[in-house]
Design a protein around this nucleic acid. Structure first.
Lengths: 132, 132
DNA sequence: GGCTTGTATCGATGGGTTTCGATTCAGTGT
DNA sequence: ACACTGAATCGAAACCCATCGATACAAGCC
């Protein structure tokens, strides 16, 4: 059996430790747990639409009062989804007077994009077997 | 029953020529639903580690017999997670003799990276960043 | 054919998630 | 102070998911 162990790099460093990305080296357990929280926040169609509405809005900010009526869901439900996105570090909220405004935190989406991007030194291995 | 559903993203009706990404325009409902399936597949620490093990392995393929003992989980559980990653279009499997080998489908991770990447024409609306 | 090993599927279960109505909190205006 | 509106929090109910043991399927070996 080709039972070859996966060496897990013991870098339990802070949240801004060196990140080689998903595709370069096996993820450590704690890194995987931390990342999974963010991806789980993206794993819901309502939250994805909320995030895209916030991120694509000219001016960078959206009032909750504009988001809630865009769905056929109750106000507490939208508030709950926004909370999950906020706890995942994807958005931030600010209250200005009566209304609460949300904005994208691009550091997180940048980080995810980097994690999912092949590095130049990572060859592709799939020479010839890709179906279409 | 073996519906190896290859999730096709953002295909409203044409080839993927215009895919603005999450951050450029609000997602349509069906696009969000399909994208959410893939992110949901990534929203589990075990699946993230499995994917990173598969993606980072030199040669591009990993035998299940190497993946299963790397976790303190039962063999059916690992098989279940691999199935979800496969149905999300992130990996593919091939049986060669006794063993089954998995490999990354880089089109999907590439697509996700693109979706999470700010386009150059999409400025950042710099506002006061961290609430000092 | 039987035996052994590797992998996938099945059925059940405990825990988590989505959603709601009701309530509470925050801010504005009267 | 009171009333009104926008948003968050609080249970609760329906649903989904991760995990397991048991079982079935696949391939090689005796």
């Amino acid at each position: 059996m080709s039972n070859q162990e996966f060496v897990v790099l013991g870098q339990g460093g802070g949240p801004d430790a060196c990140r080689p990305g998903l595709l370069a080296a096996p993820l450590a357990e704690d890194q995987a747990a931390e990342l999974a929280k963010v991806f789980k926040a993206l794993g819901d169609p309502v939250r994805l639409r909320l995030l895209s509405m916030i991120a694509s809005r000219a001016g960078g900010e959206v009032c909750v009062c504009d988001l809630t009526p865009a769905f056929e869901l109750s106000q507490p439900t939208i508030s709950h989804h926004l909370k999950l996105l906020r706890e995942a570090g994807l958005i931030a909220s600010e209250r200005r007077g009566t209304w609460v405004h949300y904005r994208l935190l691009p550091e997180m989406t940048d980080r995810l994009a980097g994690i999912l991007t092949r590095t130049a030194g990572q060859p592709l291995h799939d020479s010839g077997e890709v179906p279409a």
